[in-house]
């Protein structure tokens, strides 16, 4: 596996909306690098002929009928929101103004 670069960490931090200082970026490159290295030992396991799996249970086609079930009340739905207005979730400005 290619080494994790400082640019990779900055990119991931941006995607995850985590604001990292220059010092934190430097520290994270090292810490994440160690974690990736440890996990990488898994790649030594012999996996020839082993199907990749995405679910621990060998199930397919778990569906439900198209029948309406009660929704939450708007009050209950909005109860956990930091802010609400006009029965809607209020969120900070979406675009950064230039």
């Amino acid at each position: 596996m290619a080494d994790l670069t400082r640019d990779d960490v900055a990119h991931l931090a941006g995607l995850a909306r985590i604001d990292l200082s220059e010092a934190e970026l430097d520290r994270m490159v090292g810490e994440l690098g160690v974690i990736l290295e440890s996990v990488a030992t898994v790649q030594q396991a012999p996996t020839d002929g082993v199907e990749p799996m995405s679910h621990p249970m060998p199930l397919v086609n778990v569906t439900r009928p198209d029948v309406v079930r009660p929704s939450l009340s708007p009050d209950a739905a909005l109860a956990g929101a930091p802010d609400a207005e006009q029965q809607r979730f209020s969120v900070p400005r979406i675009l950064d103004e230039e």
Partner: peptide, 12 residues
């Protein structure tokens, strides 16, 4: 419009 908005209200 989204440009110049102070905040947004979302209906899910």
């Amino acid at each position: 419009r989204i440009h110049g908005a102070t905040h947004s209200l979302v209906d899910y």
